[in-house]
Simulated scan of single mutants.
Amino acid sequence: MAEIVAIRAGEDSAGLVRTVREGGIVRLTLNNPPANALSLDMIAALQEALDACAADRSARVVVLGAPGKVFCAGHDLKEMNARRADADRGRAFFDRTMRDCALLMQSVVNLPQPVIAAVDGIATAAGCQLVASCDLAIASERARFGVNGIDVGLFCTTPAVALSRKVKPKHAMEMLLTGEMIDAATAREFGLVNRVVPPEYLNQIVDKYAATIAAKSPTALRLGKQAFYRQAEMGLAGAYDYAAGVMVENMLARDAEEGIDAFIAKRKPQWTEE
């Protein structure tokens, strides 16, 4: 069994990600303005923060945000371009960056806790990929989204993985082929974000979502999130067979027994942390 490590408020060693714990809600804030770019160090810092969340069973919900006008501008193109001077023209560095970023995005999806993106600025390329990887996304009216690598001769292939799993294929291809930015309302229409709110209410709405989810059974959240993504990759019959097995496992969990007893007795359930 993995060691359970309590999450403490503070920053990672490089100061690139701030962590604040409020009860069962963990807030991770990208802290490298103005672009909050996914440099190799930023990827490592965010991965470290997510790993700490995954190891803490008392953490219920993770909120991912960023200050300033840019939520995340994607990969650090200056950092990557500088490695063209390497003997291999940057191949090894590019490969490490893309693969580490791919693992980071999978960590968001595979995290036991639901992850809510709170977007109050621009999210482009791998930054848009990060938003798409989150389970929920709440955007302010001034948020904008794009996968604009095509504008610099680079098709956003890895962002397309997350994007194509959250929005309809033609909407995803529209964004990938044109590189054009979309506003928050269009992002909601496309299915990239759940809600669009005035900037002054963003934190309030995100807090409401986080508190609502944090009050649910951690066992049900963990089993349900994992099952949701796994069944989506299966055929219909296989998905039902798998989902039925998960439902049985969930029914046998102490939280389900407690929750159903509490419902029948008309009292508030007391969840476990297992």
Rank of each mutant, 00 (worst) to 15 (best):
S13D: 15
I43D: 09
G65M: 12
Y242E: 11
A237D: 13
C53Q: 12
I122H: 00
F145T: 11
P33R: 02
I205Q: 07
I25D: 09
V193S: 03
D135F: 07
F190I: 05
K69S: 02
M175E: 12
A44H: 02
V131H: 09
E273L: 15
P33E: 00
K168N: 13
R222C: 10
A137H: 09
K78G: 05
A87M: 08
F228R: 15
L77P: 03
R222F: 08
G68Q: 00
P198M: 06
V197D: 08
I4N: 07
A187P: 03
K170Y: 08
C101Y: 12
E3F: 07
A160D: 07
L46W: 04
F155M: 06
K208C: 12
M42R: 02
P269T: 04
M251Y: 11
L136G: 04
V5G: 03
G65V: 10
E48R: 06
G68W: 00
P114S: 10
A262W: 07
H75C: 05
Q231I: 12
I182G: 08
E3D: 09
P112W: 00
E274I: 12
F93I: 04
V246W: 00
I7Q: 04
T158I: 15
A66Q: 02
A137I: 06
K268A: 02
I4V: 13
L40T: 14
T157F: 08
I7G: 07
V119C: 06
C128T: 05
Q47E: 15
V161M: 14
A9P: 03
A220Y: 08
E174N: 15
L103D: 15
V246G: 00
R89E: 13
N32L: 07
V246Q: 02
K78W: 05
P159N: 10
E258H: 06
S164D: 11
G235E: 04
T178R: 05
F228V: 12
E22L: 09
H171G: 12
